[in-house]
Design a protein around this nucleic acid. Structure first.
Length: 500
RNA sequence: GGCGACAUAGCCAAGUGGUAAGGCAAGGGUCUGCAAAAUCCUCAUCGACGGUUCGAAUCCGUCUGUCGCCUCCA
């Protein structure tokens, strides 16, 4: 089995992945706090870890991938109070909206989405263990983690305790021994949701749930812990301190992978300043395959600027790919009809590309480099398709298996059928008049865009046969005005929708 | 203030010691009734300065610039 290499945040360098259990990979990724609609930054993280899982599977690993929902926290409670509803209602609403939007993006989901509120007993048990082990203390209804007791605190974020002090502070109402300490359990204020505990009614702190759920579902020393870069400190640092305090064993996990953030106007999107672009809004304008290409066209760990130009560029790339694949599909049908199984080895170069492709993915999940290989491969494919005579069904099947593998590994669904205009109702309406203007008779009832365009193509084909190029060009121009591009190739006219 | 990341062509973006992948845009050729698509060709010495090395975009130092973390955040 070929090795997989990637950048581990803890070691601060690219390392060779060595699994806890041979041929198995366990991964925990911090998920959403369900206090609001998810934004494209969440989508990036979900796609990245989806693809990482796919790459491991392609390389023969059995993968277990867990991602949580934090369904109780201050923001959720606050929102519930504002809406005069309950924290549970708010949390479930955004949880369902997230899942809905993730499915629409064709992002394959984790094996499980554990929720904090389903794990309160385990969390309480973990806090008790931390108290017993001397890592935590109760303080009038709250429980805090004793950061200075954790000798290696700061090892992930490369921070030194003394440097943190200036930033640390004690909020009103907190009863900490040390400003660095953080809450494991918070006493409920009047009107807030709560669970009973040995320290009174309250709720879990912000970081303990991930330690508890990761340990519960993946066990100690699991392989990969992932999340956004902004979670490194304090969230992941705290997770390590908690988990290693609970188990009294190191390491909590073997590797850390962090995704870069998505920026708007060069600035990181942030809940606190409300500057976000929601996934559901992105889906109104762009096909999931275009968004997936956009996210994977940059290395997962780099910052990524989200803007219209960048997405349009991704769209152009997907269109280029889709065009080649559609042409491949057409030629394949012809070849299968025409040629018997026989010799054919022009797929050999595709084997070389395939190896190069998977090499890139094993090397720090380098999807941008893999796209580079895809483009080179498709250029070769286009050349091959120009010479139909040399093709055999064996060759076509072989090539097809490589192509399918390429796009499956990156999680594209039916990339050759990607549409670039999501809402065609206006175009369809306008087209009816165009059809009529060319004296084409229409039946009553609703006609699809496809139906209307095909009637125009038919009319134009007749005109071309009669060498009436004026009429032919007029039809083409009229269609172009409505974002429909005609292409004549190999005696057949096809059309595609073009973004405005 | 402390800590850290990044800086590659008009734009986006790989590449971390051996002489710059890929895409978009642009220009030119082939194909086409004309287009489109496709294909071929052209298009950078890697922020600045200094150092290490036979050799550096890649390592070290200084500077400049951008961004981030230190408070909730994927």
């Amino acid at each position: 089995m070929d090795s997989i290499y990637f950048h581990d945040t803890m070691q601060g360098k690219k390392v060779e992945f060595e699994p806890r259990i041979p041929n198995e990979m366990s991964m925990y990724v911090c998920g959403l706090t369900t206090s609001n609609d998810s934004h494209i930054g969440h989508a990036r993280t979900a796609i990245v870890f989806d693809v990482i899982r796919r790459i491991f599977r392609k390389n023969g690993y059995k993968v277990k991938y867990i991602s949580n929902f934090t369904d109780i926290d201050d923001k959720i409670i606050q929102k519930a109070q504002e809406e005069n509803s309950t924290a549970q209602e708010v949390a479930e609403r955004y949880m369902h909206r997230y899942i809905d939007v993730i499915q629409k993006m064709h992002i394959s989901e984790p094996d499980m989405y554990p929720k904090v509120t389903d794990h309160i007993p385990q969390i309480i048990e973990a806090v008790e263990k931390l108290i017993k082990n001397g890592f935590a203390y109760e303080s009038s209804g709250d429980v805090y983690f004793r950061v200075r007791k954790s000798e290696e605190y700061g090892k992930l974020s490369k921070k030194k305790l003394d440097e943190l002090i200036s930033g640390a502070r004690i909020l009103p109402g907190e009863k900490k021994e040390d400003p660095l300490d953080f809450a494991l359990w918070k006493e409920a204020k009047p009107g807030e949701p709560f669970w009973e505990s040995p320290w009174g009614n309250g709720r879990p702190g912000w970081h303990i749930e991930c330690s508890v759920m990761a340990l519960k579902y993946l066990g100690n020393h699991f392989d990969i812990h992932g999340g956004g870069q902004d979670l490194i400190f304090p969230h992941h640092e705290n997770e390590i301190a908690q988990a290693e305090g609970i188990t009294c064993a190191k390491p909590f996990c073997r590797y850390w992978i962090h995704t870069g953030w998505v920026t708007l106007d060069k600035v990181k999107m942030s809940k606190s300043i409300g500057y976000v672009f929601r996934i559901k809004d992105a889906l109104k304008h762009y096909h999931p395959n275009v968004l997936r290409y956009f996210f994977l066209a940059t290395l997962y760990s780099s910052p990524l600027e989200f803007n219209v130009e960048a997405i349009e560029r991704a769209g152009k790339n997907v269109e280029k790919i889709a065009t080649s694949l559609r042409r491949f599909r057409d030629v394949k049908l012809k070849i299968l009809l025409k040629s018997p199984l026989m010799k054919g080895n022009s797929w050999n170069s595709f084997l070389v590309y395939s190896n190069e492709y998977h090499y890139h993915l094993r090397d720090n999940f380098n999807t941008p480099a893999a796209f580079g290989t895809i483009h080179v491969t498709l250029r070769e494919l286009n050349r091959v398709l120009d010479d139909i005579e040399s093709l055999t069904s064996t060759t076509m099947k072989k090539i097809e298996s490589y192509l399918e593998d390429f796009f499956e590994t990156l999680g594209f669904v039916d990339i050759e059928d990607t549409t670039f205009v999501l809402d065609t109702s206006d175009i369809t309406n306008a087209l009816r008049d165009v059809v009529v203007s060319f004296d084409i008779e229409l039946p009553d009832g609703v006609l699809s865009l496809d139906d209307l365009v095909n009637r125009l193509i038919q009319k134009r084909t007749e005109a071309r046969k009669n060498k009436d190029f004026a009429l032919s060009d007029e039809i083409r121009d009229q269609l172009l005005k409505h974002q429909i591009v005609l292409e004549d190739s190999q005696g057949k006219t096809t059309y595609r929708l073009e973004k405005q």
